[in-house]
Nucleic acid binder design. Sequence first.
DNA 1: CTGTTAGCGCTTTCAA
DNA 2: TTGAAAGCGCTAACAG
Lengths: 361, 361
Amino acid sequence: MGGKEGWVVDRSVTLAEVAEAAGVSVATASRSLNGSRDRKVREDLRLRVLDAAARLHYSPNTHAQAVARGQASVVGLVVHDITDPYFSAIASGVIRTAEEHDLMVTLATTYRSTQRELEYVRMLRSQRARSIVIVGSRFDDKEAHAQLAEEAELYAAAGGRMALVSQQRLPVDTVLVQNRTASRTLATALHGLGHRRFAVLAGPSKLLTSTDRVNGFRHELDKLGCPVPAERVHRGAFTRDGGYEAMSRALDEGVDATCVFAVNDVMALGAMAALRDRGVPLPDGMAVAGFDDIATLRDVTPPLTTVRLPMEEMGRDALRMTLSEGHDEPRSIRVAGEVVLRESTPALSEMRPPAVTRPCT
Amino acid sequence: MGGKEGWVVDRSVTLAEVAEAAGVSVATASRSLNGSRDRKVREDLRLRVLDAAARLHYSPNTHAQAVARGQASVVGLVVHDITDPYFSAIASGVIRTAEEHDLMVTLATTYRSTQRELEYVRMLRSQRARSIVIVGSRFDDKEAHAQLAEEAELYAAAGGRMALVSQQRLPVDTVLVQNRTASRTLATALHGLGHRRFAVLAGPSKLLTSTDRVNGFRHELDKLGCPVPAERVHRGAFTRDGGYEAMSRALDEGVDATCVFAVNDVMALGAMAALRDRGVPLPDGMAVAGFDDIATLRDVTPPLTTVRLPMEEMGRDALRMTLSEGHDEPRSIRVAGEVVLRESTPALSEMRPPAVTRPCT
DNA sequence: CTGTTAGCGCTTTCAA
DNA sequence: TTGAAAGCGCTAACAG
């Protein structure tokens, strides 16, 4: 702990000490250091304060500032799981935008528990966060929505602004992913490649993002005249392992399909692993499509057909909406998603004739 | 905003209001709500307070709490890039551990700028964060270390505790990844598979994690009698694209190797993409090894040989060290890393005879 | 056990 | 322009 000059205190330096060292009042010190809009401080005084602050290694106590001004320079970010590349990409957009506004980010992870989500929103309200961005599929759960809606109202009443990246379920700013529409477009494209018999790997039935994607996909195929029967929809967790298991089960049951649609990329990844493990050649033995277009997965083989979502921008826009002033009504931005056809979904005509349709014993 | 009962205030409810509504003093209200170790509150009063707080939707102002008790329930987490799966995995460990201790996490992203890193550490000191966990390779930059060291000292003097996940460069808690040793073990293993001519895809020369891995690898191969000449070390960014470019350059120069070691998994991924784009069959045409064992990449084909690092645990341990009391001296934990041989590195004998060694024109 | 009150560090009127 | 002083919401002595 050998200090060069002066001693190292065991406690932070306060504004008062800086003021004293500079021979000015705390008011002047405060104004010099933060230049409130409350206008000027004589230049020489200002410099003396700045100098004293630097000399003493002054570090303003943001909590005291927050208490005094009744507002903190923090935004809250709530995601399901930060290790999931979908969330980390969106988080990245939020973080970048926060930085542009000199805001710190408090990150919370719910692991898909609505209860935890609620708790974190409460904690963020306690932190007087300027805004809260909640990322991730809503659940089919009235109770949870009602509770969150109440929190949102309280938060808004306290001057906070909340944004959701997912479905529009609350009267707050929303980045709305058009899952149904995009899935329909994807279905059309795959149908266009000649496929007629499809299987779907879905996430948990309560997860709206999953059900929206499944419904859109099936709906469109209905219209195209080749409906996907319920027994061709296999559920699993919304993760790589969920995809692996759902695909395995499908194969066990002797899935009668030439193309499988996994409701997100990580599930598709798991599905491809399962297919490979069962000796199904890819992409010839089974066409596979995902959703999201996760960057890290762009190099898998065969390259995955998917629906691209501008994740960074989604995070950016969500936070921006909450930060831009001059409009009280909640706004919403629709995100379309763009179908990207790659090698994982060959045209039916290019696939090996007897697609895998036999039950495994 | 139609309130059900009572009006919605435009400002948060305070402890004083709760106390009044409950007919007790603020002290009693405070004690009931947070039960300071400062002894009991009569049960009926406590319930009245809790009831009033619930009725008024009271949300404690954490900033006021932090000011009053001189300590905040926040920890800082600083990473290079949250979209990089290496960092999100470690972040996940930190976040989980923080949750266990009822601590919120403030996340900052440096994008590999030491300047930004320093700024964030300063902001976290301002936030009076209980601890700061900095994740990611240090740089070969005395100046940056000196500045960070000074900040660390000030932070410690103010009662904070800092941990580094990377190299041991500062007198703070450290999770020390044994990059050199692990790379040497990897080299031995690859040599054992019959490989004798290697190329290395390295990150920026200032990035210690990269140089440590490169040095360990080359050092061991020296000892084994098949040194990797400097011109077989190709630098690129520490990212997927960096790996792609470095590999492409290597191929352009007619790399004379049967096995290429990329200093991390994402670079290895890029390298594999580059090889594929140039028509080099994998794994027969070139063995590829990485480092980290990123979960999302476990399903790439061919499965990647790598060095497994327990990332979640590393994050967990880093935070734990800063939180456990009763020891003033900085501690450190060494993480060994475990070589995992997979199909991306076949034995030399199983590779297609004329490994790619000709220059591309 | 409960209430009074003095801070915590900072911002911001309000006078001077 | 500067400074004195009144808060901001909460905690923790310190009396009762």
